[in-house]
Design a binder for these strands. Sequence first.
DNA 1: GTCTATAAAAAGATAGAC
DNA 2: GTCTATCTTTTTATAGAC
Lengths: 182, 182
Amino acid sequence: MSRPPHARQGVLDAFEAILIADGERAATMDAVARSAGVSKGGLLYHFASKDALEAALIERLRTLVDQDLDDIAAAPEGVVAYFIRSSIMLGNPIDRAVTAVSRLAQGGSAAAGAALHEVRERWAGAVRPHVRDDAALNLVLLLSDGLYFNNLIDDTSMPAAALPSGDDLDALIALVRAATAP
Amino acid sequence: MSRPPHARQGVLDAFEAILIADGERAATMDAVARSAGVSKGGLLYHFASKDALEAALIERLRTLVDQDLDDIAAAPEGVVAYFIRSSIMLGNPIDRAVTAVSRLAQGGSAAAGAALHEVRERWAGAVRPHVRDDAALNLVLLLSDGLYFNNLIDDTSMPAAALPSGDDLDALIALVRAATAP
DNA sequence: GTCTATAAAAAGATAGAC
DNA sequence: GTCTATCTTTTTATAGAC
């Protein structure tokens, strides 16, 4: 628990990276082993099956969300603004974990789908006290989901999304805050 | 062109249904053939490869979007309200096609990802004249994306989303209209 | 802990009969 | 147009050496 072998984390990183960059189809045990610089046998020492690999990635997501909830609660610019802003993925650990687990969910993993649901519920709990009512909560959460969705589609295939950034993002956040403030 | 064989549509329906219900991983040629009630050879007469099957599904999506844009433009309750409302998937043909193609995109299909981008651009063009500015357009589009995203996660694995419906949905739409009206 | 070698199953695709 | 039979490649997993 306290000092998991580096190789194990390296394998998990490789699995995550392939899921993000090339999709669920490409994330085979073979490809993961190659990318992590170990043999297939070496990989299977750390993760006895592909299910175990997926479970470990989901576990990683849960841990990162614990941390994220702390960050959200402590955001100086306000919970809603921070939450929206952090829904644009920038490639930090939690962004990567969410993307990778979403790919698993689309591939058909029920465990991944359930984990995403749970994460969304926890985020909802963090935002709820900071918005006017349920309609406002829905607006904020769905906007966040929309940002995630676009990153999801972009990461695999496309040059870049038409997602707002800079002044456009500030304008969007201002609009949402005005519409949802208690 | 005018009267494509029924069997061909049946195969495509089966492919779509498996993608929606069980994810990309489960949508093998074998499973599709079985579900469509034909042999693998029979399937391959209609679609010479899995790529051809995917291409046909993407083509179906494009056709359904053509129709959808007409419906949006003609919506009596207003373009924005109709667009948001129709972003909650109810299992009609376009909902199913969007879901299935999204699964392919997550699996790693670049063609599917590109098609989804194109669809989103076309929807943006339909909504743009009916909102105040770019921030408002982003809000409406991202909200719609968020609704799609939730349906995507639910369809495979979960009992039901916490998505707004009935009065809650009306409240959300009213909120968005007020925040985005020109 | 990590490797090689190998088995076992599944997936995509071809050939040719009917 | 649809089938059966077969082939190839890929993918997951096991066994046992180092």
